[in-house]
Amino acid sequence: MKRAIMLVTAILVMAANTGVFAEQTASDRNECLLLSRNCKDQVDDIYTRMQRLNREIEKGTRVYTPKELQQLREKLAETQEMLRSMEKPGR
């Protein structure tokens, strides 16, 4: 139980760095998800974060460079791993 509380707290702290609503730049890049900049004071839940990352990845190279797309994919993979570790029985 204590470990689960610590894990949830860690996720909330990480999510606080990447707020809910990002101010979009003129090129429609989500700098909050990509660079943790231009974020408001709100926090995503883990499912919302995954949806937002997927939407940004779907914009592809018309909005993001290949390197930026790779960063978004890595953040999505990290988020999915966090969810899997939270869902494991016995935690």
Rank of each mutant, 00 (worst) to 15 (best):
N17W: 13
T18P: 05
G19A: 10
V20H: 13
V20E: 10
V20M: 11
V20Q: 11
A22H: 03
A22R: 03
E23R: 07
Q24R: 12
T25M: 00
T25I: 03
A26M: 06
D28F: 09
R29W: 00
N30M: 00
N30L: 03
E31S: 07
E31Y: 01
E31H: 04
C32G: 05
L33Q: 00
L33R: 01
L34K: 03
L35S: 07
L35F: 06
S36V: 11
R37Y: 09
N38T: 01
C39R: 01
K40C: 02
Q42K: 10
Q42R: 08
V43W: 01
V43R: 03
D44A: 14
D44G: 10
D45S: 08
D45T: 09
I46M: 08
Y47W: 13
T48S: 14
R49L: 15
R49K: 10
R49P: 12
M50L: 15
Q51H: 12
R52M: 14
R52D: 10
R52E: 10
R52K: 15
L53W: 05
L53N: 07
L53F: 02
L53E: 12
R55C: 13
E56H: 11
E56K: 11
E56A: 14
G60A: 01
T61L: 09
T61K: 08
R62L: 15
V63Q: 03
Y64C: 09
Y64W: 01
T65W: 05
T65M: 10
K67T: 15
E68S: 00
Q70D: 14
Q70P: 04
R73K: 05
E74H: 10
E74D: 14
E74W: 07
K75R: 07
L76D: 00
E78M: 08
T79A: 05
T79G: 05
T79E: 07
E81P: 08
